[in-house]
Write a protein that binds this DNA or RNA. Structure first.
Length: 598
DNA sequence: CTTTCCCGCCAATCT
DNA sequence: AGATTGGCGGGAAAG
């Protein structure tokens, strides 16, 4: 009696109570698509913004011709799962849903526009005004995207309102740089500390008290860190204040600028080894926004975090990261998972292909007729663009003679890239890997190995490189290994659950992505199940956690939910009769819509 | 209710 | 001084 269905027309989730024994807390589920790709919710009458209207120059009149008509609510019918929500079917031709205006979608349209613009300009220069006009958005919005593009070295300013498009082919290299920079800066270390601090917050809040051992539920987030680059353990060699700012000096306060934030965000993700590159929103925001020395581990203010959403939306649109949710008790903790190109100085990346695939996926394409037509067009253009401009260096010869808009369904180019049996959704996000796959595949193990050596850190009980093929019945590698990091002597050890993970069938293909393996994902926690030992935390330089102010997921303020939970559900954190069981699995529910009643 | 994030004010910078 | 950029946070939509 703990499954509850919720969602809207475009995304339905089924919350199922999981078995505490079988499904580790924090099981990663979801696969909820990013909003940018969800279909717009037809909402009827909008209140009609009282104030805003008048004053602000709303440069962008109404909905763009392209999107204006998505009034058509008929698309709703196409999702049979949608049974609830009586709020649909309202349509107002005038009304543009919020989702249509999302930064993510905008970003994709931006790419299209850039394409068109650069076609006429051999110098690849684009005029922002023009682009903005073409996209029917106000210039301000374009800046958000441009800033991120700048951070990715995809474009740079040449003149007033003019930017030169440089493309994202060198993204792998950029990633390699960022990764190196992150390591130099000791970021992995920092991330780890923040995670541990968060962990302690969580721990303390456990209504069960924290004496226990296995009391950490859903533990902390961000799954990342640990094995992570054994990277840890290096003192921030501050030798590089200079390279710190690759984003040109014009950026205002640097640290808080969108561009800077974007790069650092990627750095945080890249602080982890392949396949374990994920961070929670709160950890990310704390690491990125707060000052390591002076601001402690309290998640930053709400407003300071908003930028992170902007960045994430753009990165999602580019297919560089995806967003999933990790369930922690009643909360869904957002995790950002890196799925961009593997850092590699020599590889090349094809964003357009990425976007193409992204858009080609029926699951990510809003299926409203209008939107669909729109995205189809985008796909076409992108396909063309990609061919024209990236042809040579395209690593993805696989698609060679492929149809421009290949409907990349479930079996998306299995012939070109070794793909493990994974859910479509999962596979969808692998496109970036796929782009550079073939070659990379062979180098991976080696790369990661060399990286580790380079960092020269003891690799504790981690028996095999994360990227190594799964072997027979060996238990899948945990995303985190017991820590034994030289630089963290003062940090309390993290203890893993003693229980053995069930063996997996030994039929796994040679090349797989543990993080995305459906089978595995149900038995292995995305984020560790580490147990935090407060008693070992004593001499820790890290400021002891203050009275918890928030839940993991609620970095933006106090968590009322949690308070309630503390008060009312105090003695049974795992109360299975509560809607908020600590163990829930959110399953994207597309096919069967089992509304359960309570 | 909480989370996400669009919108546009307005200040810092540039021309 | 006017124009560009872009930090920032209010508040509404979405969940």
């Amino acid at each position: 009696m703990t499954a509850n269905v919720y969602g809207s027309s475009n995304a339905i989730f089924l919350t199922i109570e999981a078995n505490k024994e079988n499904i580790p807390p924090g099981t990663e589920i979801d696969i909820k698509k990013e909003e940018s790709f969800l279909l717009p919710e037809p909402r009827g009458n909008r209140p009609a913004d009282p104030d805003t209207e008048s004053l602000t120059a709303s440069p962008v009149p109404r909905p763009s011709p392209a999107t204006s008509q998505l009034s058509d609510a008929s698309f709703l019918s196409q999702d049979p799962t949608v049974t609830n929500s009586a709020d649909e079917s309202e349509d107002d031709p005038e009304f543009t849903s919020r989702k249509e205006k999302s930064l993510g979608l905008l970003c994709q349209r931006f790419l299209i526009s850039i394409n068109e613009e650069t076609q006429e300009s051999p110098t690849k220069e684009v005029h922002l005004e023009t682009v903005a006009r073409k996209m029917c958005v106000e210039k301000r919005r374009i800046y958000d995207i441009v800033n991120v593009m700048e951070a990715l070295d995809a474009m740079h300013k040449t003149n007033k309102s003019y930017y030169q498009w440089q493309g994202l082919e060198s993204l792998p290299r950029l990633m390699a740089d960022l990764q190196a920079e992150a390591i130099e800066e000791g970021l992995p270390d920092r991330v780890l500390r923040v995670e541990q601090a968060m962990c302690s917050f969580t721990e303390l809040q456990s209504p069960r008290g924290n004496k226990g051992i296995k009391d950490t539920v859903g533990s902390f987030v961000s799954g990342s860190s640990a094995p992570t680059t054994p990277t840890t353990s290096f003192e921030p060699r501050r030798t590089e204040t200079e390279k710190r700012s690759r984003v040109d000096s014009r950026d205002r306060q640097g640290r808080n600028s969108l561009a800077q934030l974007c790069r650092r965000f990627l750095m945080v993700l890249l602080s982890n080894p392949k396949n374990v590159r994920k961070v929670s929103l709160d950890v990310a925001s704390t690491v990125l926004i707060k000052d390591p020395e002076t601001e402690g581990f309290e998640p930053p203010s709400r407003s300071r975090c908003r930028r992170l959403y902007d960045i994430a939306n753009v990165l999602v649109a580019l297919g560089l990261i995806k967003k999933v949710h990790y369930l922690f008790g009643t909360k869904k903790i957002p995790l950002f998972v890196y799925c961009g190109p593997e850092p590699d100085e020599h590889a090349s990346f094809d964003v357009f292909q990425s976007v193409e695939r992204l858009l080609s996926s029926p699951q990510n394409v809003p299926q409203t007729p209008v939107i669909k037509a729109q995205t189809d067009k985008m796909v076409q253009q992108i396909a063309g663009f990609g061919k024209r401009t990236l042809s040579e260096q395209n690593l993805s010869k696989p698609i060679g003679n492929s149809p421009k808009i290949a409907k990349i369904k479930s079996e998306m180019s299995p012939m070109t890239v070794p793909v493990s049996p994974m859910a479509d959704e999962n596979r969808l996000f692998m496109f970036a890997e796929l782009a550079a796959a073939q070659k990379m595949q062979e180098d991976l193990a080696q790369l990661s190995r060399s990286l580790m050596q380079r960092v020269n850190t003891p690799m504790a009980p981690m028996t095999a490189p994360i990227s190594s093929p799964m072997v027979g019945s060996a238990p899948p590698p945990l995303p985190m290994a017991p820590l034994n990091l030289s630089g963290l002597g003062k940090l309390p050890p993290l203890v893993f659950p003693p229980t053995q993970l069930p063996n997996l069938p030994n039929t796994r293909p040679k090349f797989n992505f543990p993080d995305y393996n459906p089978t595995q994902s149900t038995i292995r926690p995305l984020v560790s199940q580490m147990t935090f030992r407060p008693e070992l935390f004593e001499n820790n330089p890290i400021p002891p956690p203050q009275p918890p102010k928030h839940l993991m997921s609620n970095i933006l303020g106090e968590s009322k939910s949690f308070k309630n939970m503390q008060n009312t559900n105090n003695n049974n954190f795992f109360d299975h009769n509560t809607k908020s069981s600590a163990f829930h699995v959110v399953v994207k529910k597309d096919e069967q819509q089992q509304r359960r009643t309570k």
